[in-house]
């Protein structure tokens, strides 16, 4: 499968911000560092889409649950569970923000993990090939 070279259109950081020697080292092999194949990206995209939809569904259920509980469950507004506050008040005054943060942390961790597992495989192959060509560092 042909490897696709991706060039970011946004301007790169200015060279004077980097140590000149190391920057030139980084620029020496740009093509081997920046590739993702369309097939890899498509597979990762599908996985990410599944994660986004699943967590978005959880988020929607959380938001929609409040008025449903208000209308159907007397306990939701009548009981006292936390410092004389009703479950509904606790949810609106703090509980929902905590739930949003938990959803965010879980989704971000899962997305980052999926990306690192599914993308960048070509780079690892290139690094392996480079090391082998440089004198068998892999054998040490």
């Amino acid at each position: 499968m042909p490897a696709e070279v991706v060039r970011h259109s946004s301007p790169a950081p200015t060279p004077e911000d980097f140590d000149a020697e190391r920057a030139s080292e980084a620029d020496a092999s740009p093509d081997t560092e920046v590739r993702d194949t369309p097939a890899e990206v498509d597979a990762a995209f599908r996985a990410q889409r599944g994660i986004a939809l699943a967590y978005f569904l959880v988020f929607l259920v959380l938001v929609a649950a409040f008025p449903v509980l208000t209308m159907t469950l007397q306990w939701w507004t009548g009981a006292r569970v936390f410092g004389e506050l009703s479950p509904g008040f606790v949810a609106a005054a703090g509980g929902l923000y905590l739930a949003f943060a938990v959803i965010g942390i879980a989704a971000a961790r899962l997305s980052a993990s999926v990306e690192s597992r599914m993308l960048g495989g070509q780079q690892e192959l290139d690094v392996h090939a480079d090391r082998t060509a440089l004198g068998g560092e892999e054998l040490r």
Binding site: E4, V6, R22, V34, D36, T37, V41, A44, E115, G120
Partner: peptide, 26 residues
């Protein structure tokens, strides 16, 4: 397809991260 690779791929991220590591190393 090119837009997709750019938007959903992580190649640019990896390059930026490597540059940042090299800068810190420097």
């Amino acid at each position: 397809q090119a837009h997709w690779v750019r938007m959903h791929g992580t190649a640019a991220d990896r390059r930026a991260e490597r540059m940042a590591r090299l800068t810190r190393g420097g």
